[in-house]
Design a protein around this nucleic acid. Sequence first.
DNA 1: TACAAATATTAGACATGTCTAATAAATCGA
DNA 2: TCGATTTATTAGACATGTCTAATATTTGTA
Lengths: 220, 220
Amino acid sequence: MLTRSEEDHIKAVYVLVQEGDKAFTKDLADRLRTKASSVTDMLKKLAEKGYLKHEPYYGAKLTAKGQALALQLVRKHRLWETFLVERLGFGWDEVHEVAEQLEHVASEQLINQLDAYLGHPAFDPHGDPIPDRNGRIRARRTRRLDVSVAGDTVRIVAVSETTDGLLRLLDAKGLRIGSTLAIQEVHAFDGSMDVKPKNGAAFSLSKDVSHHLQVESIQP
Amino acid sequence: MLTRSEEDHIKAVYVLVQEGDKAFTKDLADRLRTKASSVTDMLKKLAEKGYLKHEPYYGAKLTAKGQALALQLVRKHRLWETFLVERLGFGWDEVHEVAEQLEHVASEQLINQLDAYLGHPAFDPHGDPIPDRNGRIRARRTRRLDVSVAGDTVRIVAVSETTDGLLRLLDAKGLRIGSTLAIQEVHAFDGSMDVKPKNGAAFSLSKDVSHHLQVESIQP
DNA sequence: TACAAATATTAGACATGTCTAATAAATCGA
DNA sequence: TCGATTTATTAGACATGTCTAATATTTGTA
């Protein structure tokens, strides 16, 4: 049985490895709101327990065992987020903190029955894929909005960064999973782009925002 | 913010005070599967924090503050049990351990929206009353089955002890909340009683069992 | 009522996870 | 490529919650 802190560290390594290809001590410390020395201690311990490889000064990577565990945590997190939004009526920007707690409740039966209750959803309210009970993730051909070009028409399928600030900004602009955008112009100067939603006036999105939106192409 | 262990101790004091009028160190230790010395330490700490009064050698009692907290824990526990049984299809004898974990998830919004989602239930699947958000419990005129007499007809409204063993025994006999029993005979020798369910053959219940069943009288 | 048994507390050890400060290694820029 | 900066690790302290063993108190019974 792992502690909450151990699970949090494993999941943080998983998330950071998605982005770069290693998870570094400082990034882990920032994400976990702790200190680098504490992270080093924990990495050493988790390496001993076989959940990850820790190369001092060169970051950490999950083993197959750690990967499997991280996927279960991600699965639990996203299923709970789905439950909170779809059944309890939470806003999609209100669920993260609560799901963070719920994902540590240990019960195979609970999570599998929750999954069934929700109809085995493949994506959560942020558009992120939900691993199945074997840890498999359904693939989608998506890219970041900031690599799209003028003339594209796209549908938002995921938000890759879930800070409250970003989620509220999207909410304020009326953007959500499934929203359709026509890209009118991309400004090379700052990477900002002018976009027009299906039913509404055009507005501008900074690169900081478009960078975190996953989209798929659709017919205009 | 209290730790899980602190919350567990407060709830255990609450439960034991329901039965006797004080909670004693040894009983707390047994219930919490820990040692008496650990309980003493914790009682001292919780007394300092104002959740209970601890009279060394004479047990512990909750303060108003501790009582309020215990009632919130009971509320959360019973709402989650209701959710697990009514929505996720758990058996009523499978929910305790999971609810024990879920009750420590901290979010006012979560528990209030869960309450609304379930339709503000007043009783959980074991028939125990669910405190409302202010900690108020709806009263019922009930008594234990073992103080009933031959000739009574009663409905089971609660099971006061929730060990797996008892719950499974009840399940095997087809007894559940809402079951109706006609009491045919009570044996003074061992306190056992012969009872007959509405649609089924009569059988015997030992005092160990009938002691834990809360019933209300109904017209035969 | 006095002593044995049961229960409770205290003292001290230990495991865990966290931190700060000191030290070490890697990286970046002139 | 060298020194400054950033990042990482180690060493040691500390808080928390647990335990065992020793001691103290209460309770039950002859």
